[in-house]
Write a protein that binds this DNA or RNA. Structure first.
Length: 372
RNA sequence: GCUGGAAUCGUCUAGUGGCAAUGACAAGAGACUGUAAAUCUCUCGCCUUCGGGCUUCGUAGGUUCGAGUCCUACUUCCAGCA
Protein backbone atom coordinates (compact mmCIF):
# COMPACT_ATOMS: atom_id res chain seq x y z
CA UNK A 1 0.00 0.00 0.00
CA UNK A 2 1.17 3.50 -0.83
CA UNK A 3 2.43 5.33 2.24
CA UNK A 4 0.47 8.49 2.94
CA UNK A 5 0.90 10.28 6.25
CA UNK A 6 -1.47 13.02 7.23
CA UNK A 7 0.09 15.73 9.33
CA UNK A 8 -2.93 17.90 9.85
CA UNK A 9 -6.54 18.12 8.75
CA UNK A 10 -8.85 21.09 8.61
CA UNK A 11 -12.36 20.20 7.51
CA UNK A 12 -11.87 18.16 4.38
CA UNK A 13 -8.48 19.73 3.76
CA UNK A 14 -5.35 17.94 4.82
CA UNK A 15 -1.61 18.40 4.89
CA UNK A 16 0.39 15.26 4.37
CA UNK A 17 3.20 13.40 2.73
CA UNK A 18 3.14 10.67 0.09
CA UNK A 19 6.14 8.35 0.03
CA UNK A 20 6.93 6.73 -3.31
CA UNK A 21 9.87 4.55 -4.34
CA UNK A 22 11.29 7.64 -6.06
CA UNK A 23 10.85 10.02 -3.17
CA UNK A 24 8.35 11.96 -1.11
CA UNK A 25 5.67 14.48 -2.01
CA UNK A 26 4.60 17.01 0.58
CA UNK A 27 0.92 17.64 0.00
CA UNK A 28 -1.02 19.50 -1.14
CA UNK A 29 1.28 19.67 -4.15
CA UNK A 30 1.10 20.78 -7.74
CA UNK A 31 2.38 18.05 -10.06
CA UNK A 32 4.01 19.18 -13.29
CA UNK A 33 2.39 18.03 -16.52
CA UNK A 34 5.04 16.11 -18.43
CA UNK A 35 2.87 14.43 -21.03
CA UNK A 36 5.69 13.14 -23.18
CA UNK A 37 8.03 12.70 -20.26
CA UNK A 38 9.11 16.31 -20.27
CA UNK A 39 7.62 19.52 -18.98
CA UNK A 40 7.49 21.53 -22.17
CA UNK A 41 10.20 24.20 -22.42
CA UNK A 42 11.72 23.29 -19.03
CA UNK A 43 14.53 21.02 -17.95
CA UNK A 44 14.10 18.87 -14.89
CA UNK A 45 16.85 20.71 -13.07
CA UNK A 46 14.84 23.87 -13.63
CA UNK A 47 11.76 22.02 -12.37
CA UNK A 48 13.60 20.94 -9.24
CA UNK A 49 14.94 24.45 -8.72
CA UNK A 50 11.46 25.93 -8.87
CA UNK A 51 10.27 23.48 -6.23
CA UNK A 52 8.38 20.92 -8.25
CA UNK A 53 8.04 17.63 -6.38
CA UNK A 54 6.47 15.31 -8.94
CA UNK A 55 5.51 15.03 -12.58
CA UNK A 56 2.71 13.35 -14.48
CA UNK A 57 3.32 11.74 -17.87
CA UNK A 58 0.82 10.22 -20.28
CA UNK A 59 0.55 6.55 -21.11
CA UNK A 60 -0.97 7.18 -24.53
CA UNK A 61 1.82 9.48 -25.68
CA UNK A 62 4.66 7.38 -24.33
CA UNK A 63 3.04 4.23 -25.69
CA UNK A 64 3.19 5.70 -29.19
CA UNK A 65 6.69 7.02 -28.81
CA UNK A 66 9.27 6.03 -27.67
CA UNK A 67 7.30 2.99 -26.49
CA UNK A 68 6.91 1.68 -22.96
CA UNK A 69 9.31 -1.24 -23.50
CA UNK A 70 12.08 1.18 -24.28
CA UNK A 71 11.38 3.17 -21.14
CA UNK A 72 11.38 -0.05 -19.12
CA UNK A 73 14.71 -0.95 -20.66
CA UNK A 74 16.02 2.48 -19.69
CA UNK A 75 15.10 1.79 -16.08
CA UNK A 76 11.69 3.47 -15.88
CA UNK A 77 10.42 6.97 -16.43
CA UNK A 78 12.13 8.63 -13.46
CA UNK A 79 15.52 7.32 -14.54
CA UNK A 80 14.97 7.58 -18.30
CA UNK A 81 14.08 11.24 -18.05
CA UNK A 82 16.63 11.95 -15.30
CA UNK A 83 13.82 13.39 -13.24
CA UNK A 84 14.69 10.94 -10.45
CA UNK A 85 11.73 11.92 -8.30
CA UNK A 86 8.11 10.86 -7.88
CA UNK A 87 6.16 10.21 -11.07
CA UNK A 88 2.56 9.69 -12.05
CA UNK A 89 1.15 8.40 -15.31
CA UNK A 90 -2.25 9.19 -16.66
CA UNK A 91 -3.92 6.16 -18.18
CA UNK A 92 -4.69 7.44 -21.65
CA UNK A 93 -8.35 7.67 -20.70
CA UNK A 94 -8.40 11.38 -21.31
CA UNK A 95 -7.26 10.84 -24.90
CA UNK A 96 -10.37 8.78 -25.59
CA UNK A 97 -12.26 11.85 -24.69
CA UNK A 98 -10.14 14.48 -26.40
CA UNK A 99 -8.88 12.90 -29.61
CA UNK A 100 -10.93 12.70 -32.78
CA UNK A 101 -11.74 9.32 -34.32
CA UNK A 102 -11.74 7.26 -31.16
CA UNK A 103 -14.13 4.34 -31.08
CA UNK A 104 -15.07 3.08 -27.65
CA UNK A 105 -16.39 -0.36 -26.92
CA UNK A 106 -16.59 -2.38 -23.75
CA UNK A 107 -13.25 -3.92 -24.68
CA UNK A 108 -11.49 -0.59 -24.78
CA UNK A 109 -10.78 2.35 -27.07
CA UNK A 110 -9.62 2.14 -30.65
CA UNK A 111 -7.12 4.89 -31.18
CA UNK A 112 -5.41 6.12 -34.25
CA UNK A 113 -1.83 7.18 -33.79
CA UNK A 114 -1.38 10.87 -34.51
CA UNK A 115 2.15 10.03 -35.62
CA UNK A 116 1.47 7.64 -38.48
CA UNK A 117 -2.20 6.68 -38.38
CA UNK A 118 -1.54 3.22 -36.94
CA UNK A 119 -4.60 1.83 -35.23
CA UNK A 120 -4.50 0.13 -31.90
CA UNK A 121 -6.83 -0.90 -29.14
CA UNK A 122 -6.14 0.52 -25.71
CA UNK A 123 -7.75 -1.62 -23.05
CA UNK A 124 -7.70 -1.38 -19.27
CA UNK A 125 -5.26 -4.30 -19.27
CA UNK A 126 -2.97 -2.77 -21.87
CA UNK A 127 -3.02 0.56 -20.08
CA UNK A 128 -1.95 -1.16 -16.85
CA UNK A 129 0.78 -3.17 -18.59
CA UNK A 130 2.03 -0.05 -20.34
CA UNK A 131 2.05 1.96 -17.12
CA UNK A 132 4.00 -0.78 -15.36
CA UNK A 133 6.54 -0.74 -18.16
CA UNK A 134 6.79 3.02 -18.06
CA UNK A 135 7.31 2.50 -14.38
CA UNK A 136 5.70 5.56 -12.84
CA UNK A 137 5.17 5.38 -9.11
CA UNK A 138 1.48 6.11 -9.32
CA UNK A 139 -0.82 4.91 -12.10
CA UNK A 140 -4.31 6.03 -13.03
CA UNK A 141 -7.00 3.51 -13.80
CA UNK A 142 -8.16 3.53 -17.41
CA UNK A 143 -11.38 5.50 -17.38
CA UNK A 144 -13.93 7.02 -19.70
CA UNK A 145 -15.12 10.60 -19.71
CA UNK A 146 -18.59 11.33 -21.03
CA UNK A 147 -18.74 13.13 -24.34
CA UNK A 148 -21.64 15.29 -23.22
CA UNK A 149 -23.12 16.73 -20.06
CA UNK A 150 -26.19 14.62 -20.72
CA UNK A 151 -27.03 12.57 -17.65
CA UNK A 152 -27.52 9.28 -19.49
CA UNK A 153 -24.14 9.66 -21.24
CA UNK A 154 -22.54 10.57 -17.97
CA UNK A 155 -23.96 7.56 -16.19
CA UNK A 156 -22.97 5.22 -19.00
CA UNK A 157 -19.38 6.51 -18.96
CA UNK A 158 -19.26 6.25 -15.20
CA UNK A 159 -20.48 2.67 -15.18
CA UNK A 160 -17.98 1.75 -17.85
CA UNK A 161 -15.27 3.42 -15.80
CA UNK A 162 -16.27 1.20 -12.89
CA UNK A 163 -16.20 -2.00 -14.93
CA UNK A 164 -12.86 -0.97 -16.37
CA UNK A 165 -11.58 -0.25 -12.87
CA UNK A 166 -12.21 -3.89 -11.92
CA UNK A 167 -10.25 -5.03 -14.96
CA UNK A 168 -7.48 -2.55 -14.14
CA UNK A 169 -7.26 -3.93 -10.61
CA UNK A 170 -7.00 -7.52 -11.81
CA UNK A 171 -4.22 -6.64 -14.21
CA UNK A 172 -2.54 -4.44 -11.63
CA UNK A 173 -2.44 -7.37 -9.19
CA UNK A 174 -0.91 -9.57 -11.89
CA UNK A 175 1.71 -6.95 -12.59
CA UNK A 176 2.39 -6.52 -8.90
CA UNK A 177 3.13 -10.22 -8.48
CA UNK A 178 5.31 -10.18 -11.55
CA UNK A 179 7.24 -7.20 -10.25
CA UNK A 180 7.75 -8.85 -6.87
CA UNK A 181 9.16 -11.90 -8.59
CA UNK A 182 11.51 -9.76 -10.66
CA UNK A 183 12.42 -7.62 -7.64
CA UNK A 184 11.15 -4.46 -9.29
CA UNK A 185 10.01 -1.55 -7.13
CA UNK A 186 6.36 -1.39 -6.27
CA UNK A 187 3.98 0.75 -8.26
CA UNK A 188 0.61 2.05 -7.15
CA UNK A 189 -2.84 2.44 -8.60
CA UNK A 190 -5.40 5.21 -8.23
CA UNK A 191 -9.04 4.59 -9.13
CA UNK A 192 -10.74 7.40 -11.04
CA UNK A 193 -14.02 8.92 -9.91
CA UNK A 194 -16.37 10.12 -12.64
CA UNK A 195 -19.95 11.38 -12.69
CA UNK A 196 -19.62 14.87 -14.15
CA UNK A 197 -21.73 17.57 -12.57
CA UNK A 198 -24.31 15.14 -11.19
CA UNK A 199 -23.72 14.94 -7.48
CA UNK A 200 -25.54 11.65 -7.04
CA UNK A 201 -23.48 10.08 -9.83
CA UNK A 202 -20.35 11.44 -8.20
CA UNK A 203 -21.44 9.89 -4.93
CA UNK A 204 -22.12 6.57 -6.61
CA UNK A 205 -18.74 6.65 -8.31
CA UNK A 206 -16.93 7.61 -5.12
CA UNK A 207 -18.63 4.78 -3.21
CA UNK A 208 -17.69 2.32 -5.92
CA UNK A 209 -14.05 3.39 -5.93
CA UNK A 210 -13.85 3.66 -2.15
CA UNK A 211 -14.44 -0.06 -1.68
CA UNK A 212 -11.70 -1.14 -4.04
CA UNK A 213 -8.19 -2.06 -2.87
CA UNK A 214 -6.58 0.88 -4.64
CA UNK A 215 -3.83 3.13 -3.31
CA UNK A 216 -5.56 6.41 -3.95
CA UNK A 217 -8.01 8.22 -6.13
CA UNK A 218 -8.08 10.44 -9.15
CA UNK A 219 -11.02 12.75 -9.53
CA UNK A 220 -11.63 13.16 -13.23
CA UNK A 221 -13.91 14.83 -15.69
CA UNK A 222 -13.71 18.25 -14.05
CA UNK A 223 -13.44 21.22 -16.41
CA UNK A 224 -14.39 24.26 -14.42
CA UNK A 225 -14.28 25.46 -10.84
CA UNK A 226 -18.02 26.18 -11.01
CA UNK A 227 -19.68 23.72 -8.70
CA UNK A 228 -16.41 22.00 -7.98
CA UNK A 229 -16.60 22.74 -4.25
CA UNK A 230 -19.98 20.99 -3.91
CA UNK A 231 -18.82 18.07 -6.02
CA UNK A 232 -15.60 17.62 -4.04
CA UNK A 233 -17.50 17.85 -0.79
CA UNK A 234 -19.67 14.93 -1.87
CA UNK A 235 -16.82 12.84 -3.29
CA UNK A 236 -14.21 13.43 -0.63
CA UNK A 237 -16.57 12.78 2.24
CA UNK A 238 -17.07 9.31 0.78
CA UNK A 239 -13.49 8.50 -0.24
CA UNK A 240 -11.48 7.04 2.64
CA UNK A 241 -9.49 9.86 4.19
CA UNK A 242 -6.36 7.77 4.74
CA UNK A 243 -5.66 7.51 0.98
CA UNK A 244 -4.40 10.34 -1.25
CA UNK A 245 -6.55 12.05 -3.86
CA UNK A 246 -5.45 13.59 -7.09
CA UNK A 247 -7.56 16.20 -8.89
CA UNK A 248 -7.00 15.39 -12.53
CA UNK A 249 -6.29 18.25 -14.93
CA UNK A 250 -7.33 21.16 -12.75
CA UNK A 251 -5.12 24.10 -11.88
CA UNK A 252 -5.02 26.51 -14.74
CA UNK A 253 -7.04 28.95 -12.67
CA UNK A 254 -5.53 29.64 -9.24
CA UNK A 255 -9.00 29.33 -7.72
CA UNK A 256 -9.00 25.65 -8.73
CA UNK A 257 -6.08 25.04 -6.39
CA UNK A 258 -7.69 26.77 -3.43
CA UNK A 259 -10.99 24.97 -3.91
CA UNK A 260 -9.27 21.66 -4.55
CA UNK A 261 -7.12 21.84 -1.43
CA UNK A 262 -9.89 23.17 0.76
CA UNK A 263 -12.16 20.30 -0.20
CA UNK A 264 -9.71 17.50 0.30
CA UNK A 265 -7.52 17.04 -2.76
CA UNK A 266 -3.83 16.33 -2.17
CA UNK A 267 -2.28 16.67 -5.59
CA UNK A 268 -3.09 18.52 -8.82
CA UNK A 269 -1.81 18.44 -12.34
CA UNK A 270 -2.59 20.78 -15.17
CA UNK A 271 -1.16 21.66 -18.56
CA UNK A 272 -2.50 25.18 -18.18
CA UNK A 273 0.47 26.90 -16.56
CA UNK A 274 2.98 25.80 -19.19
CA UNK A 275 0.62 26.09 -22.15
CA UNK A 276 -0.48 29.57 -21.12
CA UNK A 277 3.17 30.49 -20.69
CA UNK A 278 4.08 29.37 -24.19
CA UNK A 279 1.19 31.42 -25.51
CA UNK A 280 2.24 34.53 -23.62
CA UNK A 281 -0.21 34.52 -20.69
CA UNK A 282 1.49 34.94 -17.31
CA UNK A 283 0.15 34.73 -13.80
CA UNK A 284 0.63 37.63 -11.47
CA UNK A 285 -0.84 38.24 -8.02
CA UNK A 286 -3.03 40.84 -9.72
CA UNK A 287 -4.36 38.43 -12.33
CA UNK A 288 -3.23 37.11 -15.66
CA UNK A 289 -1.44 39.31 -18.16
CA UNK A 290 -0.69 38.81 -21.84
CA UNK A 291 2.96 39.73 -22.19
CA UNK A 292 2.56 40.27 -25.93
CA UNK A 293 0.36 43.33 -25.39
CA UNK A 294 1.86 46.53 -26.76
CA UNK A 295 1.59 48.25 -23.39
CA UNK A 296 4.45 46.06 -22.09
CA UNK A 297 6.85 47.15 -24.79
CA UNK A 298 8.33 49.80 -22.55
CA UNK A 299 7.41 48.38 -19.14
CA UNK A 300 10.71 47.79 -17.39
CA UNK A 301 9.22 46.36 -14.22
CA UNK A 302 9.19 42.61 -13.48
CA UNK A 303 6.14 40.48 -14.35
CA UNK A 304 5.42 39.98 -10.66
CA UNK A 305 7.63 41.82 -8.18
CA UNK A 306 6.68 39.42 -5.39
CA UNK A 307 7.76 36.38 -7.41
CA UNK A 308 11.09 34.68 -6.73
CA UNK A 309 11.48 32.96 -10.10
CA UNK A 310 14.38 33.51 -12.47
CA UNK A 311 12.25 35.64 -14.79
CA UNK A 312 10.96 37.98 -12.13
CA UNK A 313 14.28 38.29 -10.31
CA UNK A 314 16.25 39.25 -13.41
CA UNK A 315 14.16 40.40 -16.33
CA UNK A 316 11.61 43.06 -17.19
CA UNK A 317 8.25 42.79 -18.91
CA UNK A 318 9.77 44.83 -21.71
CA UNK A 319 12.47 42.23 -22.30
CA UNK A 320 10.02 39.32 -22.18
CA UNK A 321 7.73 41.22 -24.54
CA UNK A 322 10.67 41.57 -26.91
CA UNK A 323 11.44 37.82 -26.69
CA UNK A 324 7.83 36.97 -27.51
CA UNK A 325 7.64 39.47 -30.36
CA UNK A 326 10.74 38.00 -31.89
CA UNK A 327 9.58 34.46 -31.12
CA UNK A 328 12.73 33.61 -29.24
CA UNK A 329 12.63 30.24 -27.45
CA UNK A 330 13.97 31.79 -24.27
CA UNK A 331 10.81 33.83 -23.90
CA UNK A 332 8.74 30.67 -23.68
CA UNK A 333 11.26 29.11 -21.32
CA UNK A 334 11.22 32.08 -18.94
CA UNK A 335 7.44 32.34 -19.09
CA UNK A 336 7.05 28.61 -18.38
CA UNK A 337 9.50 28.87 -15.52
CA UNK A 338 7.46 31.69 -14.05
CA UNK A 339 4.01 30.13 -14.43
CA UNK A 340 5.13 26.78 -13.12
CA UNK A 341 6.82 28.45 -10.17
CA UNK A 342 3.70 30.52 -9.58
CA UNK A 343 1.38 27.51 -9.23
CA UNK A 344 3.88 25.37 -7.31
CA UNK A 345 4.47 28.21 -4.91
CA UNK A 346 0.78 28.98 -4.57
CA UNK A 347 0.07 25.39 -3.56
CA UNK A 348 3.08 25.38 -1.22
CA UNK A 349 1.68 28.51 0.43
CA UNK A 350 -1.71 26.84 0.70
CA UNK A 351 0.06 24.00 2.50
CA UNK A 352 1.80 26.39 4.86
CA UNK A 353 -1.43 28.28 5.47
CA UNK A 354 -3.26 25.05 6.29
CA UNK A 355 -0.52 24.16 8.74
CA UNK A 356 -0.56 27.54 10.44
CA UNK A 357 -4.33 27.81 10.40
CA UNK A 358 -4.31 30.86 8.11
CA UNK A 359 -5.90 29.21 5.12
CA UNK A 360 -9.11 31.25 5.12
CA UNK A 361 -7.36 34.60 5.17
CA UNK A 362 -4.75 33.55 2.65
CA UNK A 363 -7.46 32.32 0.32
CA UNK A 364 -9.55 35.47 0.66
CA UNK A 365 -6.55 37.76 0.18
CA UNK A 366 -5.23 35.87 -2.81
CA UNK A 367 -8.50 35.41 -4.67
CA UNK A 368 -9.86 38.89 -4.08
CA UNK A 369 -6.66 40.37 -5.46
CA UNK A 370 -6.19 37.94 -8.34
CA UNK A 371 -9.76 38.15 -9.57
CA UNK A 372 -10.29 41.82 -8.76
C1' G B 1 21.40 58.18 -74.10
C1' C B 2 18.87 53.66 -76.30
C1' U B 3 15.98 48.96 -75.56
C1' G B 4 13.08 46.15 -72.46
C1' G B 5 10.55 45.45 -67.62
C1' A B 6 8.18 47.14 -63.12
C1' A B 7 5.28 50.59 -59.76
C1' U B 8 -1.12 47.49 -55.44
C1' C B 9 -2.97 48.39 -47.75
C1' G B 10 3.74 49.04 -42.75
C1' U B 11 6.62 44.98 -45.87
C1' C B 12 6.48 41.25 -49.70
C1' U B 13 2.59 39.76 -52.86
C1' A B 14 -2.31 37.98 -55.97
C1' G B 15 -4.88 40.33 -59.56
C1' U B 16 -5.15 40.47 -67.65
C1' G B 17 -12.57 44.74 -67.96
C1' G B 18 -17.53 43.95 -62.74
C1' C B 19 -12.78 44.85 -57.10
C1' A B 20 -12.46 47.97 -51.07
C1' A B 21 -9.14 44.46 -54.14
C1' U B 22 -5.72 37.85 -52.76
C1' G B 23 -2.16 35.51 -49.65
C1' A B 24 1.93 35.78 -46.22
C1' C B 25 4.42 38.54 -42.63
C1' A B 26 4.10 42.57 -39.35
C1' A B 27 0.59 45.06 -36.12
C1' G B 28 -3.86 45.08 -32.50
C1' A B 29 -6.76 41.95 -29.32
C1' G B 30 -8.80 37.38 -27.40
C1' A B 31 -8.89 32.12 -26.09
C1' C B 32 -6.41 28.07 -23.78
C1' U B 33 -7.78 23.28 -17.34
C1' G B 34 -5.71 14.50 -16.87
C1' U B 35 -1.27 18.79 -24.00
C1' A B 36 -2.00 15.79 -31.84
C1' A B 37 -1.27 23.25 -28.69
C1' A B 38 6.13 27.39 -29.36
C1' U B 39 -1.37 26.43 -30.85
C1' C B 40 -6.03 28.49 -32.30
C1' U B 41 -9.68 32.64 -33.22
C1' C B 42 -10.97 37.62 -34.48
C1' U B 43 -9.59 42.66 -36.36
C1' C B 44 -6.48 45.00 -39.75
C1' G B 45 -8.30 52.09 -46.06
C1' C B 46 -11.73 56.04 -43.67
C1' C B 47 -16.69 56.91 -41.73
C1' U B 48 -21.26 54.48 -40.16
C1' U B 49 -27.80 55.18 -37.04
C1' C B 50 -24.44 48.39 -39.54
C1' G B 51 -28.82 49.52 -44.30
C1' G B 52 -24.73 51.62 -46.16
C1' G B 53 -21.58 55.92 -47.39
C1' C B 54 -16.70 57.82 -48.91
C1' U B 55 -11.64 57.60 -50.81
C1' U B 56 -8.09 53.97 -52.92
C1' C B 57 -3.74 50.16 -56.77
C1' G B 58 3.21 55.95 -58.85
C1' U B 59 1.11 61.00 -61.25
C1' A B 60 -2.10 63.27 -64.93
C1' G B 61 -5.32 62.54 -68.77
C1' G B 62 -8.18 59.20 -72.04
C1' U B 63 -11.28 54.75 -73.89
C1' U B 64 -15.59 52.13 -71.54
C1' C B 65 -22.11 51.37 -68.67
C1' G B 66 -17.86 49.94 -65.71
C1' A B 67 -10.42 50.57 -65.25
C1' G B 68 -5.70 48.01 -60.44
C1' U B 69 -6.46 45.71 -65.19
C1' C B 70 -6.76 48.78 -72.00
C1' C B 71 -4.47 53.59 -74.38
C1' U B 72 -1.26 58.29 -74.02
C1' A B 73 2.19 61.31 -71.50
C1' C B 74 5.08 62.08 -67.35
C1' U B 75 7.80 60.42 -62.75
C1' U B 76 10.66 56.82 -60.24
C1' C B 77 13.07 52.13 -59.97
C1' C B 78 15.35 47.56 -62.22
C1' A B 79 17.97 44.86 -66.20
C1' G B 80 20.74 44.82 -70.78
C1' C B 81 23.33 47.75 -74.43
C1' A B 82 26.24 52.13 -75.05
Amino acid sequence: MLKFEIEKTSGLARVGEITTPNGKIKTPAFVGAATRGTVKALTFSEMRALGSQAILANTYHLFLTPGSKLIEEAGGLAKFSAWNAPTFTDSGGFQIFSLPDVKITEAGAKFKSYLNGDKFLMTPELSMQTQWEIGADIHMAFDQLAKSENRADMERAMNRTHRWLDRCLLEHENQKLLAKKNKKPEQFLYAVVQGGTFLNLRATSARYAAEKPVDGFGIGGVFTADGMDEMLKVVNQILPSEKPRHLLGMGQEPRDLFIGAEFGCDTFDCVGPTRLARNGALYTLDGRINIKNSKYKTDFSPVDSSCDCELCKNYSKSYLNHLFRTNEITGKVLASLHNERFVVRTVDKIRAALLSGDFESYKTDFLSRYYA
